[in-house]
């Protein structure tokens, strides 16, 4: 918070801190929810696009404004907070896995009809890439800590590239499977397969988005270590979750 308590002292009409961006983002999210209803419940594509057209810009503007307003004013508490947030995130995956096991152990026939052979090699390569990116970001952090900004920048960029490769391979694999007629609606297994890999993929996207949001500061060289540690923590989490995803949906 920019403001100090004693600043308010003395003034009869002390200034109260405000920020308009949380408000803007919230109503942007409302528009997204309404858009979903328009599209899927009332089958009104036009209204859906309209509402998306309101919501998405609001959210983007909100996030951009927020970032520029708050950059560099953090109190260094985000690392601890990220730990709590990851607990909540992990529970989403836990619920998916538990419902998967519950279903799988309850039915007489598993896998249900309609399955196809999943690729075996590709997931291993993807695992390798993701683990590598976890190591590169860890090394980057280390370099930043030592103050070696140039090398840090290289390893940081390398992490982003590896993450992007991982995403690319996911997309390739999905389109391949869908092409073969294995879609999210085929049966209960396909539902789990696409939703769990999709959920993980969305976390990779968020992780990359955090890195990209930090990229300008990295290039300028004024990135702070707190941000790097927090972003790195999230990325390690995304990496660890992948082990569960890969072992449960591909090899079990």
């Amino acid at each position: 918070m920019a403001h100090d308590a004693h600043h308010a002292e003395g003034h009869a009409h002390a200034h109260w801190d405000t920020s308009i961006y949380p408000f803007i983002i919230s109503f942007g999210i409302l528009a997204l929810a309404v858009a979903f209803s328009f599209k899927f419940v009332y089958h009104n594509g036009f209204a859906a696009i309209l509402s998306l057209g309101i919501g998405v810009p609001l959210i983007i503007a909100g996030i951009a404004g927020w970032t520029s307003e708050a950059m560099g004013k953090g109190e260094g508490l985000s690392y601890g907070a990220m730990g709590w947030f990851i607990l909540a995130e992990a529970m989403i995956f836990v619920s998916f896995f538990v419902s998967y096991w519950y279903t799988k152990l309850h039915v007489d026939v598993w896998p249900p009809a309609g399955n196809i052979e999943l690729p075996r090699i590709m997931p291993l390569v993807m695992t390798f890439i993701l683990v590598a990116s976890s190591l590169t970001i860890h090394y980057a952090e280390h370099l930043l800590h030592l103050g070696n900004k140039g090398a840090f920048r290289t390893w940081y960029l390398l992490t982003i590239v590896l993450g992007a490769c991982f995403l690319g391979m996911s997309v390739y694999e999905w389109s391949h499977l869908i092409h073969e007629g294995f879609t999210i609606g085929t049966n209960a297994f396909s539902t789990v397969f696409f939703s769990v890999t999709g959920l993980h993929g969305s976390h990779v996207v968020v992780g990359l988005a955090i890195f990209l949001a930090g990229l300008p500061s990295v290039l300028r060289g004024d990135i702070d270590e707190g941000f790097m540690r927090t972003a790195g923590l999230y990325w390690h989490f995304v990496d660890i979750i992948w082990f569960f995803v890969v072992s449960q949906v591909y090899y079990w």
Binding site: F40, S99, Y102, P112, A113, N187, A188, T191
Partner: peptide, 22 residues
């Protein structure tokens, strides 16, 4: 309901009780 998945559809291998547990 809207995206065609089968978490709770027993004819496709899903299970209605999963929801209640979650």
């Amino acid at each position: 309901k809207y995206l065609g998945t089968n978490f709770f559809d027993p004819t496709k291998g899903g299970d209605v009780l999963t929801y209640q547990n979650l």
